[in-house]
């Protein structure tokens, strides 16, 4: 019984190692999010400037989102254009 326990404990991973691995994964995501949240508002503003050169749009008619699934990131832009008569 005690021998079995001994063999098992050898196999079991130390909890500190599990903590370290979990942290490394969660932080790699968190750091990416931090960087993204830094550039997204800027990107939104620059897009707004460019688009308003051609089309008359409001600040709240442009929506920028970044979605991450696994190792793939999707940048989603949603720009609502005004009705044709409002376009100059």
């Amino acid at each position: 019984m005690s021998l079995l326990k001994f063999l098992r404990s050898g196999n079991r991973q130390k909890s500190a190692n599990i903590a370290r691995e979990r942290l490394q994964i969660v932080l790699s995501h968190q750091r990416m999010d931090d960087k993204t949240s830094d550039f997204l508002p800027k990107l939104r503003n620059e897009l707004l400037t460019v688009i308003s050169k051609y089309v008359n749009i409001d600040k709240d008619q442009i929506n920028v989102q970044l979605q991450r699934t696994g190792d793939c990131s999707i940048l989603e832009l949603n720009i609502t254009l005004p009705t044709t008569e409002e376009i100059f």
Partner: peptide, 16 residues
């Protein structure tokens, strides 16, 4: 506890 592997070590925290 760190030596027993029950707590993140100083090196772990510093490295992360």
């Amino acid at each position: 506890r760190a030596e027993r592997g029950e707590m993140l070590s100083i090196g772990d925290v510093q490295e992360i």
